[in-house]
Simulated scan of single mutants.
Amino acid sequence: MNRSELVTAVAERSGLTQTDADAVLSAFGDVLVEAVAKGEPVKLPGLMTVERVERAARTGRNPRTGEALEIAASFGAKLTAGSKLKAAAAGD
């Protein structure tokens, strides 16, 4: 499902116009990005949890030359599926 299909589905289920549903989806995305950037987890019970995780510095290897190189510490985003999402994926 792409963004326009998602906007259409949200508009149909919520009774909003597609313009309003698109605005809600954009606002949700903005809030999600801001919260994760601050290090705050975003929890939607039963659906998902999105949080920022820290990746430690480590030694990697250049696959072409085999030379060892240092990979700096960084941050990433982790999405954990909730019970409803897991059940839907399992076909329950």
Rank of each mutant, 00 (worst) to 15 (best):
residue 2 N to V: 12
residue 3 R to V: 06
residue 4 S to H: 09
residue 4 S to T: 14
residue 4 S to Y: 07
residue 4 S to M: 13
residue 5 E to C: 06
residue 5 E to D: 15
residue 6 L to C: 11
residue 7 V to C: 04
residue 7 V to P: 09
residue 8 T to R: 15
residue 8 T to D: 12
residue 9 A to M: 05
residue 9 A to C: 01
residue 9 A to Y: 02
residue 13 R to Y: 00
residue 14 S to I: 08
residue 15 G to I: 04
residue 15 G to M: 07
residue 15 G to K: 04
residue 15 G to N: 03
residue 16 L to D: 02
residue 16 L to R: 03
residue 16 L to I: 00
residue 17 T to Q: 05
residue 17 T to F: 05
residue 17 T to S: 14
residue 17 T to H: 06
residue 20 D to M: 10
residue 20 D to W: 03
residue 21 A to P: 11
residue 22 D to M: 10
residue 22 D to Q: 15
residue 23 A to G: 04
residue 24 V to P: 14
residue 26 S to M: 09
residue 26 S to N: 15
residue 27 A to V: 13
residue 27 A to M: 13
residue 27 A to P: 06
residue 28 F to V: 12
residue 28 F to S: 11
residue 28 F to G: 07
residue 28 F to C: 09
residue 29 G to N: 01
residue 29 G to P: 00
residue 31 V to F: 04
residue 31 V to Q: 07
residue 33 V to F: 10
residue 35 A to S: 14
residue 35 A to T: 06
residue 36 V to P: 07
residue 38 K to F: 01
residue 38 K to Y: 01
residue 38 K to C: 06
residue 39 G to F: 02
residue 39 G to H: 00
residue 39 G to V: 01
residue 39 G to W: 04
residue 40 E to C: 04
residue 41 P to N: 09
residue 42 V to H: 08
residue 42 V to G: 06
residue 42 V to T: 03
residue 43 K to V: 11
residue 43 K to S: 13
residue 44 L to N: 04
residue 44 L to S: 07
residue 44 L to D: 02
residue 44 L to P: 02
residue 44 L to G: 04
residue 45 P to C: 05
residue 46 G to W: 00
residue 47 L to W: 14
residue 47 L to M: 14
residue 47 L to A: 14
residue 48 M to L: 15
residue 48 M to Y: 14
residue 50 V to M: 11
residue 50 V to F: 12
residue 50 V to C: 11
residue 51 E to A: 14
residue 52 R to L: 10
residue 52 R to A: 15
residue 52 R to K: 15
residue 53 V to C: 12
residue 54 E to L: 13
residue 54 E to Q: 15
residue 55 R to S: 03
residue 56 A to G: 11
residue 56 A to D: 10
residue 57 A to G: 13
residue 58 R to N: 07
residue 59 T to Q: 13
residue 59 T to Y: 03
